[in-house]
Design a protein around this nucleic acid. Structure first.
Lengths: 237, 237
DNA sequence: ACCTGAACACCGTTCAAGT
DNA sequence: ACCTGAACACCGTTCAAGT
């Protein structure tokens, strides 16, 4: 293959920098080492370039984060667009469920995304496009715009496939510390202790820290979808 | 009043540092200037002390953030504990609703809390205590431990009074930028455009950026509570 | 025991300079 | 046009020194 770069071959592996390459590298770095590892200097290093060179392809760090979001959300929109699922006019819940679980599948591969998405203060065009598809599904399912609007708020981040849990130790050490903290409070927490004992009995190995996220996500999603269906059928468009 | 500090009065206003004073100052600083303003150096400055002095009262920054959470959640637990609301045995939904909305009232005064709470990886004793109260309410309302466990997951952060919105420009400039981004995509977004037109008609002045958060929060909460009640009554404890 | 100041290893970003 | 390196104003945290 022809290398466009002239001169000695000391940097053969380095492709010319582009916004797309910068964003993809940033996503890969975040996937591998967490979002905190994504600094301009570290990302430059990863690309074999000075940190300052990145500024030719990205306005500032905030723009980098926004671009990372767009990169992944574009993937999600592609997957959701390719979906040949249930007809929303026949079963809007099944149709929306398929969209959400498809999005979730991709979300789970980029665990930094929820945090970044929530911390953004400018709107993401990709997320807007995603919502357009959700809204079309709800409309086809017989929702008025007013109820669909409420529905989007009620679903919140769940529509994109994630829900933040208030307990989620991310390392074994933190999990152990959390267990210890809980044990220390045990006498104050009779209901919690009994619940955990029972849940652990039904599902050995589960703890407060690692309940089955997928099951719980789907349970919560279905609770919301059911509640919305009741309201829809009570007040059709 | 007697000042315990001897010596010249050049620092009369400075109370002796304590963990409690450090935490309260940090909360006040975050309330006023946002969580990004809470750096060790800046907080020290606020207290008239070198940044390094804070380390005598706080293990590290992470401990400071954890302490800030505890400070506010203790407030919430106090308010929720003082509640003389509906009897959960008679109406668990009303009882839980009262707890959640009380928590939300205090949450709204510390807008940095949701973000910090979600980014923590060690469990908060205060939040655990809060959950104990919620669980007691659910049990009194006739939930099995198994269903109550699912319910806690389904409620997620909503149980503490907040739900993250994927659209929330925090400044007028960001709001304007978001509106512009949306306008540019308008032809691709027929449903979204029509929905916004209708919602704006019903509720003039509302935009994607600032729907009535309280109304939407309560709508979403009730959707979940209704869905849970259906499951509870279908499979009593 | 409590507080200090210098130092270390990092940040994001600006700017003038190189090719 | 694209990339560089020094510099600026910040971070959290360690350490040896002060009282």
């Amino acid at each position: 293959m022809s290398e466009t770069a002239p001169g000695p071959d000391r940097d053969a592996a380095r492709r010319p920098l582009s916004r797309d390459l910068v964003l993809r590298s940033a996503v890969a770095l975040a996937d591998q080492s967490g979002i905190d590892a994504v600094s301009m200097r570290r990302l430059g290093q990863e690309l074999g370039v000075e940190a300052m060179s990145l500024y030719h392809h990205v306005h500032r760090k905030d723009d980098l984060l926004g671009g990372m979001v767009e990169t992944v959300v574009a993937e999600i929109n592609l997957a959701v667009g390719a979906l040949r699922g249930p007809d929303p006019a026949a079963d809007w819940r099944a149709a929306l469920r398929a969209r959400v679980l498809t999005a979730r599948g991709l979300m789970l591969q980029h665990t930094w995304l929820p945090g970044v998405l929530e911390s953004r203060t400018t709107v993401s065009p990709g997320v807007i496009r995603y919502y357009e598809g959700v809204l079309a599904t709800l409309r086809a399912g017989g929702f008025s715009y007013d109820l669909a609007h409420h529905a989007l708020h009620a679903l919140g981040s769940r529509v994109l496939g994630f829900s933040q849990e208030l307990f989620d130790p991310s390392t074994p050490a933190e999990d152990a510390a959390s267990q210890a903290a809980l044990a220390e409070l045990a006498t104050e927490l009779p209901h919690l202790v009994e619940m955990l004992a029972e849940v652990a009995h039904d599902d050995p190995g589960s703890t407060l820290g690692w309940c089955d996220d997928q099951t719980e996500f789907e349970f919560g999603l279905d609770v919301v979808l059911d509640g919305l269906e009741r309201r829809r059928s009570a007040a059709p468009a």
